[in-house]
């Protein structure tokens, strides 16, 4: 049975990804940040053998280390790592207005630094697996087509993430790792704390596209390209 680790699996895209991989017969380690949120527990009732919940706060180095140890105790191999966990940076507005940079630092800590650390912890388990490294990024990190104005620590954190991924790619792709960089589209998600009523796509729909991209084989593995839920390419 192939193995996938998914961070930020409590709800939204992460939860939908779990479901997709479980239906395909994968063993899934689901990073759980919000134990009070019931969906993962419900999903576990459906897949008691295949789904394992791992307490995981990617913004906390101790939590990352503990989660990694727990995964190591359960499996020798991880085939796919999906770095999905991410947060917004609230309270952003005009650059000349009031700013809370602590929230921007949190966004960097979770969205970029946490992701890099997760890769570090999982790499030893991935060397004999399928070597698929998947990252949920965002068009928000694309400078070339940046259309927002006003300060956004979230955008900065996603651009930082994309640079981190580039550096990983340069080192690991020649070793046979396959990189997938995915922009999930404007989803109706829980990023703000409750399910958004605006957005163009449901998390389940985006997850289906994501999984097809994550699992496909490409004859252009030596190119790092961000694709979205419509299979369109985005510039950096």
């Amino acid at each position: 049975m192939k193995t996938v680790v998914i961070t930020g699996a409590d709800r939204g895209l992460g939860l939908a990804l779990c479901r997709e991989f479980l239906e395909k017969g994968y063993r899934v380690f689901a990073g759980q940040f919000m134990p009070e949120w019931p969906e993962l527990d419900r999903l576990r009732l459906q897949y008691p053998d295949a789904l394992q919940l791992i307490a995981l706060d990617v913004g906390n180095p101790e939590s990352l280390a503990k989660a990694a140890e727990e995964i190591r105790n359960c499996t020798d191999v991880v085939d796919i790592l999906i770095n999905n966990a991410g947060i917004t940076a609230r309270g952003e507005g005009a650059i000349g207005g009031e700013m809370d940079l602590s929230r921007s630092l949190d966004a960097f800590r979770v969205n970029c630094l946490g992701t890099m650390q997760m890769v570090r912890h999982m790499l030893p388990l991935m060397q004999t697996g399928e070597k698929r490294l998947c990252f949920i990024s965002s068009e928000a990190g694309s400078i070339s087509v940046c259309a927002r104005n006003g300060f956004s620590g979230y955008c900065m954190s996603k651009t930082a993430l994309n640079m981190g991924i580039r550096l990983l790619f340069n080192r690991l792709q020649p070793q046979g790792y396959r990189f997938r960089l995915y922009h999930p589209g404007w989803m109706r998600t829980y990023m703000s704390g409750k399910k958004s009523t605006v957005g163009k796509i449901e998390a389940e729909e985006s997850a289906r596209v994501a999984v097809s991209q994550f699992l496909e084989d490409r004859d252009w593995e030596d190119r790092l390209v961000m694709l979205d839920c419509y299979n369109q390419a985005w510039p950096f």
Partner: peptide
């Protein structure tokens, strides 16, 4: 970027470039 190191500098600079764009 075709390199693998100087991660601190590269990541910070890229983020500031996004700030500049905003």
């Amino acid at each position: 970027c075709r390199e693998t190191g100087k991660s601190g500098k590269r990541i910070v600079l890229a983020a500031v470039h996004m700030f500049a764009s905003l």
